[in-house]
Design a protein around this nucleic acid. Structure first.
Length: 418
RNA sequence: GUGGGCGUAGCUCAGUUGGUUAGAGCGUCGGGUUGUGGCCCCGGAGGUCGAGGGUUCAAAUCCCUCCGCUCACCCCA
């Protein structure tokens, strides 16, 4: 095999494409039903957009981005996530002047150079929601509602777990961070190598460590909950109240943290059973500080992303095939030419009609009609052409009736309408 | 970047202590019905056994190297 797709990039073949269409259809319906508007930003951005937004020292920026120079020497990056590009667009077009609160959704491919595994590809797809311009806790709850609503259409709710936490704000978070770093420093010898490294780069991440020894130590580590300022605490409380009002079950996880630097206050993950190690199907949070990193105005925001590939893993069973209304089996050049006229007429009138591209035996054409799941089959050969008639066969009941060629398309349209 | 598992037909997989033209089921195409689908019967097409090298009279099978896929670590949606 000489020519293959690039590692971590997959062909989406018909069966899977249909499932994705379904996912996108449901997502659109849910999002637009809640008053969101679709935006589509470029897949390619100046590297700076992500370097500034996501954080210079995150793994994503340091080693996972597809970054390259174009022919003019411009440093560009395939987007590894959606939020930075959307916020860039909002600021570039001053959309915050159009409306004080923007409710956007987008969907499409993202790119990260990671080692592929179950539920993780290098080109992956997300459904994204961004609420920009509101610092209301109800915005947080609505975003979470949207994630839960879409995911629960494809997964049983008992398999889902919504975890939520507050990361605090620039007033209270640094206090916690300082104490945590101090704590980690004092317990350095009891931590695994990874956590020793993490405690330097991204201290909050140590809480994710699966090492038992580390977890023992971390039981005594300072937790954000005890540092949170009254404003953040009140915000969190209102988010939780709203979630309860929406009827969405959740658990608080004081150790839940985020990989991206721009998150503030509310953060959440929606996890699902049966996904393997990559169990998060949707995640998001509040990013009030991001706009200013882009030299934009003070602009609060909250958003989330649903991983489409992970949603696909949760979808059970096959989608039933679209029904074909009619198959036209024509034999001989005269009938086959006439059939093209009917085909055009019926298709223009919204009927789903199929036809054999090759002049095959009737048996072969019937077989094809059966395979595509046609409800009716129109049979026209030389004999019928001579008699100026055609046979309409109900594929299920095997009943056949003889139709006059005069006004045939109109009659077919009438008879095969479901 | 690190570690484990797996590479035989389009798909799912058999293939004995190394042994002659590498098999099955499904799918596909055709025939059984010179003009009627599914079920049944018969037949055809389709493989550099992941690649290269080595051992051997003989390798899908044993050894080495590489490549690919996959799961997990890392990290993250």
């Amino acid at each position: 095999m000489t020519l293959k797709a690039v590692k971590g990039f997959k062909d989406i073949l018909p069966e899977e494409a249909r499932k994705r269409q379904k996912i996108e259809e449901v997502a659109r319906q849910v999002f637009e039903g809640c008053g969101l508007q679709e935006v589509r930003t470029p897949i390619l951005e100046k590297t700076e957009v992500f370097a500034r937004g996501i954080g210079e020292h995150t793994d994503i920026v340091e080693k996972e981005m597809y970054t390259f120079k174009d022919r003019n020497g411009q440093l560009l990056t395939l987007r590894p996530e959606a939020t930075a590009g959307i916020l860039r667009a909002v600021i570039e077009h001053k959309l915050y002047n159009v409306s004080p609160v923007l409710k956007f959704y987008t969907m499409g491919p993202m790119f990260r150079h990671e080692r592929p595994q179950k539920g993780r590809l290098r080109q992956f797809h997300q459904l994204n929601v961004e609420y920009i311009g509101s610092d209301s806790p109800v915005a947080d709850a609505e975003v979470i509602f949207l994630a839960y609503e879409v995911v629960s259409r494809f997964a049983s709710e008992e398999d889902l777990l919504l975890e939520i936490n507050s990361l605090g704000c620039p007033q209270c978070r640094p206090l916690h961070r300082k104490d945590l770093v101090y704590f980690l420093k004092n317990n350095m010898e009891d931590l695994c190598k990874d956590c020793q490294r993490r405690s330097q780069l991204n201290p909050l991440r140590v809480f994710d460590c699966k090492n038992e020894q580390c977890q023992k130590v971390l039981k005594f580590a300072p937790v954000m909950k005890h540092y949170i300022c009254p404003e953040c605490a009140s915000h969190m409380g209102k988010v939780l109240d709203a979630l309860e009002a929406f009827g969405i079950p959740f658990v608080q996880n004081p150790y839940l943290v985020r990989g991206l630097d721009y998150y503030r206050r509310t953060t959440f993950e929606l996890r699902a059973k049966g996904l393997g190690a990559q169990s998060t199907v949707a995640a998001g949070g509040r990013y009030d500080g991001l706009s200013r990193l882009f030299d934009g105005p003070e602009l609060p925001g909250v958003g989330m992303a649903i991983g489409v590939e992970r949603l696909l893993l949760l979808m059970k069973g096959e989608l039933e095939a679209e029904e074909v209304d009619l198959f036209i089996a024509a034999l001989g050049s005269e009938a086959r030419t006439e059939a093209l006229y009917w085909l055009g007429y019926l298709r223009r009138n919204g009927l789903r009609v199929e036809y054999s591209l090759e002049d095959k035996s009737l048996k072969a054409q019937m077989k094809q009609a059966d395979r595509v799941g046609a409800r009716y089959c129109l049979i026209v050969g030389e004999r019928e052409m001579d008699e100026e008639e055609a046979i309409l066969r109900n594929m299920e009941t095997k009943e056949q009736e003889i139709l006059d060629l005069d006004d045939l398309p109109e009659i077919l349209l009438e008879k095969t309408k479901s």
